[in-house]
C-alpha cells in the first residue's frame, strides 16, 4: 500500500514580475510529502526551493504571483481557498520557520507575549493556560530555565536561542506540516549541531516536515527522502540513501562531488563550471545543460520530465537510462 500523502504539489508555477523581466523562479514543479516523513528540498540559491515553501503558504512576496498548478493539502487545493481560510491553515495546519530567526520575532514584545498570542489565536484557552503551554514548548525545544527565559525580549537572546523559539512558535499549534527554510544556515557550526539534534528529536512527534537547505550534510542526517532542485525545476527525487549512494542526475552527482568535506579523504572537489543561470532567460531544454559534463545535443532542445527509473526513484534527465546502466557509486 502506498504511503498516504499529506501534501501533493502538481505543476506549481510561480513567477516574479520585475521591471527587468519575468523571473521564472518556480517553473512547473511537482512533489509530494508523505505523512510523518521529512522531505529534504535541496538546491542552491535561485533553485526555487524557498519560493516553493512560500507558495505553499500563499505568502509569495510582491511582485511574485502563483500562476498555475495545484497544491493539494489533505485532499483540498490550497490555491482555491479564500484568504480567510488560508489564515486558518497557516500556523495551525502548516507552520513555517524562516532562515532568519532574528527578524521573525517582534522586538517590542516579550517572548511570552508572542508565544501566547499565537496559541490563543488558534486555540480557545485562557492566558494562564497559554502561558503554561508556552513553557511546555520551551521544554520541548530544550531551553534551560523556561520560566525565566520566557519573559526575555528578543534582543536579549542569541541566534541559536531565537531559532529554538521560532521552532517552539511553529510547534505551538501542533501543525501537521512544518516548513523549515534553511533553519541552521545563519548559525555557527556548534549551534547548528544543537538545532539539528533537536530537529531529529522532533521527528518523534510524528508530523511531516519539509526541510529546505543547500547543505547536503544537513539533509543527510535528518531527511527521509530528498528532492534535488535546480533553477526552478526538480532534477531528482529519491530516498536519502539512494541520493547519496546512487545519484543519477548529473547535477545531484556534481553537487555531492563539489562538497569538500572534513571526513572525506578526497583531495580535489569537483568543479562545476559556470554559474547559476539567470532565471529571466533560463537555458532552453534542460536548465542544467550548459554546465553539464554529459550534455547531448538534444539536452538543449527537450525539457526532460521526471521519470521513475526504478521504484521510488525519479529523475528528470533524458540520459537517465544510460546513466543507470553504468552508474558508479559515488564514493564518500
Amino acid at each position: 500500500m502506498a504511503p498516504r500523502e499529506i501534501l501533493k504539489i502538481e505543476n506549481l508555477t510561480t513567477y516574479f514580475y520585475t521591471w527587468a523581466g519575468v523571473v521564472k523562479a518556480v517553473d512547473g514543479i511537482s512533489l509530494d510529502v508523505r505523512e510523518g516523513e521529512t522531505l529534504g528540498l535541496v538546491g542552491e540559491s535561485g533553485s526555487g526551493k524557498s519560493v516553493t515553501a512560500l507558495s505553499i503558504l500563499r505568502i509569495v512576496p510582491m511582485p511574485g504571483r502563483i500562476i498555475g498548478g495545484k497544491i493539494i493539502y489533505k485532499g483540498e487545493n490550497l490555491l482555491e481557498k479564500t484568504e480567510d481560510e488560508m489564515q486558518q491553515i497557516r500556523g495551525k495546519e502548516i507552520a513555517y520557520i524562516s532562515q532568519d530567526p532574528a527578524t521573525s520575532l517582534n522586538p517590542v514584545f516579550s517572548i511570552a507575549d508572542q508565544l501566547t498570542e499565537v496559541i490563543r489565536r488558534h486555540q480557545n484557552v485562557t492566558k494562564e493556560e497559554a502561558l503554561k503551554k508556552a513553557i511546555e514548548l520551551f521544554r520541548l525545544v530544550e531551553i534551560a530555565d523556561p520560566e525565566i527565559k520566557i519573559w526575555n525580549y528578543p534582543h536579549q537572546l542569541s541566534g541559536g536561542m531565537k531559532q529554538r523559539i521560532a521552532i517552539a512558535r511553529a510547534l505551538s499549534c501542533q501543525p501537521n506540516l512544518l516548513l523549515a527554510d534553511e533553519p541552521t544556515t545563519n548559525l555557527d557550526v556548534t549551534i547548528q549541531a544543537q538545532i539539528l539534534e533537536l530537529m531529529k528529536n522532533l521527528k518523534k512527534l510524528g508530523m511531516s516536515m519539509i526541510l529546505i537547505t543547500h547543505d547536503m550534510g544537513v539533509v543527510a542526517g535528518v531527511a527521509d527522502r530528498i528532492n534535488v532542485m535546480y533553477a526552478g525545476r526538480v532534477c531528482e527525487v529519491a530516498s536519502t540513501k539512494t541520493i547519496f549512494r546512487n545519484p543519477v542526475h548529473p547535477y545531484s552527482r556534481a553537487l555531492l562531488e563539489a562538497v569538500s568535506h572534513v571526513t572525506v579523504k578526497r583531495v580535489q572537489p569537483k568543479i562545476i563550471p559556470g554559474a547559476i543561470p539567470n532565471l529571466i532567460s533560463p537555458p532552453s531544454g534542460c536548465r542544467f545543460h550548459p554546465r553539464c559534463d554529459f550534455a547531448a545535443a538534444e539536452c538543449a532542445a527537450v525539457v526532460p520530465q521526471l521519470v521513475e527509473i526504478e521504484p521510488e526513484h525519479y529523475v528528470a534527465c533524458i540520459r537517465a537510462k544510460e546513466f543507470m546502466e553504468n552508474v558508479k557509486e559515488v564514493k564518500l
Binding site: 549541531a193 550534510g217 544537513v218 543527510a220 536519502t240 547519496f244 571526513t263
Partner: peptide, 8 residues
C-alpha cells in the same frame, strides 16, 4: 564533530 556529514 559538529559538522554535518553528507552521508546518511
Amino acid at each position: 564533530s559538529a559538522i554535518p556529514v553528507p552521508d546518511p
